[in-house]
Design a binder for these strands. Sequence first.
DNA 1: CGGAGGATTGAGAATCTTCAATAAACGTGG
DNA 2: CCACGTTTATTGAAGATTCTCAATCCTCCG
Lengths: 244, 244
Amino acid sequence: MTVSCDKCPLRSRRIFKNLTDRELDFMKSFKMGELQVDAGAAVIMEGSKSPHFFTVLSGVGIRDKTLPDGRRQITNFVFPGDLVGLQAGLLGEMKHGVEATSDMVFCVFQRERIWDLFKNHPSRAYDVTWLAATEVRSISDSLLSVGRRTARERTARMFTYLMRRAQESGFASSENSMPFPFRQLQLADAIGVSLVHTNKMIQSLRRDGLIELEDGILTVPDLEALHEVALSDEEPDDPGRPLL
Amino acid sequence: MTVSCDKCPLRSRRIFKNLTDRELDFMKSFKMGELQVDAGAAVIMEGSKSPHFFTVLSGVGIRDKTLPDGRRQITNFVFPGDLVGLQAGLLGEMKHGVEATSDMVFCVFQRERIWDLFKNHPSRAYDVTWLAATEVRSISDSLLSVGRRTARERTARMFTYLMRRAQESGFASSENSMPFPFRQLQLADAIGVSLVHTNKMIQSLRRDGLIELEDGILTVPDLEALHEVALSDEEPDDPGRPLL
DNA sequence: CGGAGGATTGAGAATCTTCAATAAACGTGG
DNA sequence: CCACGTTTATTGAAGATTCTCAATCCTCCG
């Protein structure tokens, strides 16, 4: 059987907000199942109109958009606790795709019940909006990065971002390291740099001892130092992130 | 006195959704005033915690973020009907600034009453979320552009985007032209290209007859052609955009 | 008339891309 | 456990786009 919301392994993490009993009851009824996908699978296709939307229960992935000629931009990474597919629920159609980068498990919700949520559970509706606003912030940060940072700065910033998200969501494997199931091509498509140049920037950060990346594990010995290379201001979220 | 919501000049435009009488009554009480600013003024500062948020009643502006060393990225343009400052209302602090680029007028709402909106007016709460989701989509489009399009393609795409927004919001002055109160430095900061190179790309589009830009008026004789240069898929929004 | 901000243009320099080749890692079947 | 095809990572080098520097021009405004 599927994980019951009141035993949700994510909810006990410090970063996530606690729910009232009433909210929890609602979430249990709201959740209609689980979806499991293998690494590499497309979870949502750009342009699709799925009747479902999801919360990531475990694993990581990416969101992406493509140009007519195939050039691709990864717009964000997806970590446990993230809401996925809301766009289809609200706007009718997904304007980006979602792809699993590791094995993933999702909680599945029905698109049609979103109105029920707004009508009868304003606190949860507020939380959905909070998540959307946070998404805006996150993508804006990436836009600043791609638009105005140098390739090396972007690369550094991406690693600090991934480390922070991994730590907050519990995906990290220790204080300063995390499983790293991403290809360099994906990293390149995320920071708007060619694959070859991305590789060179990674080598450069390695040589300077700012990151270690081997056997699918990323280690950042000194996060503060990496932040400085990235010219990054971005701070960790306070506890209180909602989890649907 | 200020404009009453039931006489709102924006609401009659085709693109915007109609409200029920009850919703309209609520909006009238929700609106607490108007804010007028001159072209060039900062409306919201990055990092601020304003007790208000706004809907643009007239005029246009930009949203921007800056790096510690001053490099700036314009993350989006602001047109009539756009909601501004919601981030502070939901997340506590604005992570980007907003600057008026023409004279502007805003409807002013109180941050504290946002909870009232979620609790008692679910349809309006839904609309707020819809707007946030649309913002995500819009910024993602820009991220794709900055990350993966060439300078010329980006420039073309920016003009198609601005034309579409101007037409939908009523800011356009005719079928294929609009007031254009933007400096080339701002355009450069929006597309992630240097000022000098932005100028060269604009000249290039001009030479090819794709845009005309003089006396503060932008004219796009053949929007379809410009879309092709931009490799752009982006479609106009359907009528039904909510207006707060 | 003089000054300021904005637009435009040319030219050399730099970053980044593309091409090309090699090496390493991984999975599959024998 | 090894051979082999495939994907991914790495590196060098030439070429292109884009950036920075610098100068000129233009318009607006007091």
